[in-house]
Simulated assay, not measured.
Amino acid sequence: MMANAVLFDLDDTLYPYSPCRDAGLEAARKTAREFGYDFDRESFEDFYQTGRTEVKRELSGTAATHERFIYFKRALEELTDESRPGDALALGDAFWEAYLEEMTLFPAVEETLETLQSAGIDVAITTNLTTRIQLAKVEKLGLEPYIDLLLTSEETGREKPGSVMFTLPLARLECRPSEAVMVGDDVEADILGANAVGLETVLWNADPDEPLEGRRAPDHRIDAFEELTEVVL
């Protein structure tokens, strides 16, 4: 198909997530040790997961469920039985500073976006997380010249696979679902959600052996990012 618009997920779709997460956690751990907390890598991971699990349970379906400052705030409260906002802020700042520093695009992403732009195809990013950090990621990756719209779940009050995360960017781009493609790595959030709205779907950077059926099945799977142009042009 010749698409009029392509919607992209951001995290683990345009750049690899895991190295950034690991760098962020290590920086936060070192900051915690400077503050007198005796964490090795294993115990710090347990500490982090304590806060993360609590936040995921209580705030599921909201952008705040991804917020590392809340993870650290809750984990510190659980660990110390005290409110330690300064420490939580320092750990969160250390995490995101190192995370952003580690970020780099997947191969061929910039060239593919340039090709889409040259073809007159609108490009949007629709992403689950808070707006400030996603803006910082877009800036760090140098994506601003290539995108026409960024939409976060904080703005809509709903997370993917909620339909508004697909219908709202399409409305702003004045594009019908049948004229658009969604590209993502997450079957539940990206593929299931976009299929339900009627977009053509492309699964990338996912387990190639996972069997997918029904609305969880993408229209296309790609093994290299540059293969996307064969789908949309």
Rank of each mutant, 00 (worst) to 15 (best):
M2W: 11
V6P: 10
L7N: 15
D9R: 04
L10Q: 00
D12Y: 09
Y15K: 03
S18D: 07
P19E: 04
C20G: 06
A23V: 02
A28I: 04
R29E: 02
K30G: 00
T31G: 00
T31C: 08
A32S: 03
F35M: 14
Y37R: 01
Y37V: 05
D38G: 01
D38C: 06
D38M: 04
F39W: 13
D40P: 08
R41P: 00
E42R: 05
F44V: 03
F47R: 01
F47H: 01
Y48K: 03
Q49E: 12
V55W: 10
V55L: 11
R57M: 14
E58H: 02
E58S: 01
E58N: 12
L59N: 08
G61E: 10
T62P: 12
T65D: 09
E67M: 05
E67Q: 11
F69R: 02
F69L: 02
K73V: 01
A75P: 09
E78I: 12
L79G: 05
P85Y: 12
G86E: 15
G86Y: 06
A88D: 14
A90S: 15
A90I: 11
L91Y: 12
G92S: 14
A94C: 03
F95P: 10
F95H: 09
F95I: 03
E97F: 01
E97A: 07
A98K: 02
A98E: 08
E102Y: 02
E102D: 03
M103Y: 10
T104N: 12
F106H: 09
A108E: 15
V109T: 13
E110D: 10
E111Y: 10
T112W: 09
L113Q: 03
E114F: 11
Q117W: 13
A119R: 09
D122G: 03
V123G: 09
V123C: 03
A124Q: 11
A124T: 09
I125V: 14
I125T: 07
T130A: 04
R132V: 14
I133Q: 14
I133H: 13
I133Y: 13
A136I: 06
K137S: 07
E139F: 08
G142V: 10
G142K: 03
Y146Q: 00
L150W: 14
L150M: 15
S153M: 11
K160Q: 11
K160Y: 12
K160C: 14
P161R: 04
T167E: 15
L168E: 13
E174K: 05
E174R: 05
C175A: 15
P177F: 09
S178T: 13
E179A: 10
A180V: 08
A180R: 13
A180G: 13
V181F: 13
V181K: 06
V181A: 14
M182N: 08
V183E: 07
G184K: 00
D185C: 02
E188K: 03
G193Y: 12
A194W: 15
A194L: 04
A194M: 08
N195F: 15
V197D: 05
V197M: 04
G198C: 06
L199K: 10
E200I: 10
T201L: 08
W204L: 00
W204M: 06
D207A: 06
P208C: 02
P208E: 11
D209V: 04
P211N: 11
P218Q: 01
P218T: 06
D219E: 09
H220G: 07
I222Q: 00
D223Q: 15
D223Y: 02
A224F: 01
F225S: 00
E226R: 05
E226Y: 05
E226A: 08
T229Q: 08
L233R: 07
L233W: 10
